[in-house]
Nucleic acid binder design. Structure first.
Lengths: 142, 142
DNA sequence: CTTGCTCCTCTAGCCGCTAGAGGATGTAAG
DNA sequence: CTTACATCCTCTAGCGGCTAGAGGAGCAAG
């Protein structure tokens, strides 16, 4: 019997993770090294592809590689309590909420800058002026 | 007459930019190299400190170093039209708005995951399940 | 047999810093 | 005057999460 599995390019298109990124994930130990063909090519099975898609989805949702490591380890032990997965997701939610809050303050500041700009000379430009003097900011979170 | 100016540490505390970061800004040409004392130490004048504070504020507002380069160049020509500064700020605003939109979608997705989690076993964990299958996402922006 | 694609490994680069080694200088107290 | 300690200098390497490119081997089709 011959070894079977998809080559890395197919694993890439099926999972949506780029080829060099797959190799990178193997390098950092996020994905275990797959078997190789006799010509030394990586061979991925369906489970590998699923894992890659899982990783990609988690990355899209902004989870860090370390968090994904935890989630993947959990996924491999279906009998365990999912409290840990829950905690990871909750931490991510808190992070996202904080980012939204600070970006919203930023947005207001930028709008104020732009609206205040009379499109004249740099000397009286509101954008430059506010950047030069934090005291002119309304939202001090930054 | 002796050369005058503040040493880098004082420039750092006054501008709020850390010492190694100031040197880094000089390295990448964001801040021009200041004169040196006879013992080869950098000497910063008030204008340098103002420039550093400007840079810091712009970074806090999320402007990239290249955008700041543009803004600094503009600031040096007060007679010019401020249309360019306006454009830089508008681009930044668009970017911030896009980030807020995608983070808001993410937040909804994470909340849905967490609420759906019955705190049981990993096998029926909603968090893991959604991560494993993008099709279960409501918000497809990611 | 040749063309052109995929695959391999390895190294270096991206951004915006941050950390640390190893050494010279400055300042203040004993 | 010495000793201690802070501050400064340069240089190199590292962070996260990839991405790009060199240089070479293999594979499938015409």
């Amino acid at each position: 019997m011959t070894l079977q599995g998809a080559p890395i390019g197919e694993a890439a298109t099926r999972s949506g993770v780029k080829v060099p990124t797959i190799r990178y994930y193997e390098l950092i130990g996020l994905l275990s090294a797959p078997p190789r063909s006799d010509a030394n090519r990586r061979l991925y099975d369906d489970d590998d592809v699923r894992r890659l898609a899982f990783i990609r989805h988690a990355r899209e949702l902004g989870f860090e590689v370390d968090a994904i490591r935890t989630l993947l380890a959990l996924q491999d032990e279906p009998g365990q309590s999912c409290a840990a997965a829950d905690a990871v997701a909750r931490n991510r939610l808190i992070d996202v909420e904080q980012r939204i809050a600070s970006l919203t303050a930023l947005k207001a500041e930028l709008e104020r800058m732009i609206v205040g700009c009379a499109h004249g000379r740099v000397a009286e430009c509101r954008v430059i002026e506010i950047l030069a003097d934090h005291g002119k900011c309304v939202y001090a979170q930054h």
